[in-house]
Nucleic acid binder design. Structure first.
Lengths: 317, 317
DNA sequence: TTGAAAGCGCTACCAA
DNA sequence: TTGGTAGCGCTTTCAA
């Protein structure tokens, strides 16, 4: 023992895994790190995984590649679990992972039909919250800026927003397609919105980076946020709190989501028979900062209408 | 073969590594991901490592922990190489890594005395470039905002800046200690600077996030950038290019740095006898955007004084 | 309590 | 070219 210590001996965990059949490695697959939301997630994930005595094998999907192209390489490492964030995997691929014995869980995305466990912010509820907030602050010409249209994150936020708007009898003023979750996409979409004959009085962007881009575009057009146009984002990335933006947004409960995801991996369960293929939806929270202004007169004093029965929500203007 | 394929057989790369003595895993150690500069580095690193057919084992240092506490855990995985970014390792620890057979290279930091290979932006040259730029645009009361004072990144930028300023016969107006590379630290430091009796006419921040925080603070004090105070950052993170900031800064050549670092790992060399314990310093580039204004009269038309002999650089004001 | 041996999934080597 | 065997560093099991 003393000898081993003085020689700097370290047991070879790789050899051990051969016999124990557990590598203590969990793979994390991500599309990219350019959206500030992703590093936040990755950081928490790493913290959680490491503190459970496991290591994180990071797998970034190269631009233009699909996740199904790179998963096989991952599978060779016989990782204990695979966590796929912000990317959609085919259910065929998920099945093949399961066949290899690696539980898979999706993060921040889910596959509607398939039986793949996932944890995700409740984006529909989030979208509805934004609609409520804009309504209760007297906005009547809300616009929405999409990212990638058929990604669940984007779609659910849109659907929640549109649906609640309809219940509230306010019609959508415009729907611009940004095309991707990026500052540039938000900037361009907002610029197009601002060039229209009639301005929206508020814009809900599919994500914070897009909203920040939008604010930059609105200001570049010599308009003020929120006096001329209110802006709402989604995620609550650090930049959203900076003095130049002070963005009102929906905060994703990252810690809880990460906790849930790691739990869903089933790593702590000694015997995992059948992990419940459940999709967990976690509630976001409206963070009111300074990009939404109260418009019009005679509005409800209490801006929060979430708990009010829909029938009573009659606009007084 | 057909049978193997239809059964979805994947060779166990972990078992293979036992005999080949190469895991094809390279470990990347990082302090945190909150500074936007780090995700950029990580993304490039991942891209590079993966395209060489290797995997990236990510290791985040938990807050309050020292890297030497967590390295032993890493060593157990017998990774092919260890890349340590933005954190300083004791030379004793580096020696122990080398003893385990894993080459170590430092990224974005170096240990002055020790024989540990490193790749790093030439921060002294960068600091000098900023001094030149501020001088040639007519600034006479430059201030510097430090992050963590004894980190090489911070210290070299400061030394380069101070040194060149002295050569140029312009005296430093103020030196504030921010304490860390963060938006908040930059904000607070700038606020203190702005409360002084005499304002600096320009501030060089140790990093971009700090500079952004500084701009926010300057604006919060009802001052304009650059009309009242010019601002220069370091890194060229994506935010620096956004319309609200348009930060003039020194761009770190991340791709080149990553290339060099991966090469220094010596993974491609079939037989590595003795990796040269060299410290690579890579040149940054001044990116002129809109946070530096030309002040005063009678200045040189050409803003670039780098190639001029020092003796001729006589201020005409 | 201690020690020896088998075997995890693979590659390397040597013999046929 | 093909097939068989030893052994990588560990854990587990079983015998002493």
């Amino acid at each position: 023992m003393k000898a081993a210590d003085s020689l700097g001996y370290q047991p070879n965990i790789i050899a051990r895994s051969l016999i124990t059949r557990r590598t203590n490695i969990v793979a994390v697959v991500m599309a990219n790190l350019t959206d500030p939301f992703h590093p936040q997630v990755l950081e928490q994930l790493a913290q959680r995984i490491q503190s459970s005595g496991r290591q994180l094998l990071l797998f970034l999907i190269p631009p233009g590649k699909h996740i199904d192209d790179v998963l096989p390489a991952l599978l060779q490492y016989k990782v204990d679990a695979i966590l796929i964030t912000s990317a959609t995997v085919s259910s065929r691929m998920a099945a093949s992972c399961a066949a290899q014995g690696s539980p898979v869980v999706l993060f921040n995305r889910y596959v509607p039909g398939a039986r793949i466990p996932a944890v995700c912010c409740d984006n529909i509820a989030g979208g509805r919250t934004v609609a409520n907030h804009l309504w209760s602050t007297g906005h009547v010409r809300p616009a929405f800026v999409s990212a990638e249209v058929d990604v669940t994150t984007n779609r659910d936020r849109a659907h929640g927003f549109f649906g609640r708007l309809e219940e509230l009898c306010v019609s959508l003023h415009a729907h611009e397609i940004g095309g991707e979750f990026s500052h540039g996409a938000g900037y361009d979409a907002a610029r197009r919105l601002v060039q229209r004959r009639q301005l929206p009085d508020s814009i809900f962007f599919a994500s914070d980076v897009m909203a920040i881009g939008g604010i930059d575009a609105i200001r570049a057009a010599n308009l003020r946020v929120p006096e001329d146009i209110s802006v709402v984002g989604y995620d609550d990335i650090p930049v959203a709190g900076w003095a130049s933006y002070e963005l009102t947004t929906i905060r994703q409960p990252i810690s809880q989501m990460v906790d849930t995801a790691v739990a869903a991996l089933g790593l702590d369960a000694l015997k995992i028979k059948k992990p419940p293929n459940k999709i967990h939806f976690m509630e976001g929270a409206l963070i009111e900062r300074k990009t939404v202004v109260r418009r019009g007169y005679g509005l409800r004093a209490n801006g929060d209408v979430r708990n009010s029965p829909v029938g009573q929500l009659v606009r007084k203007s």
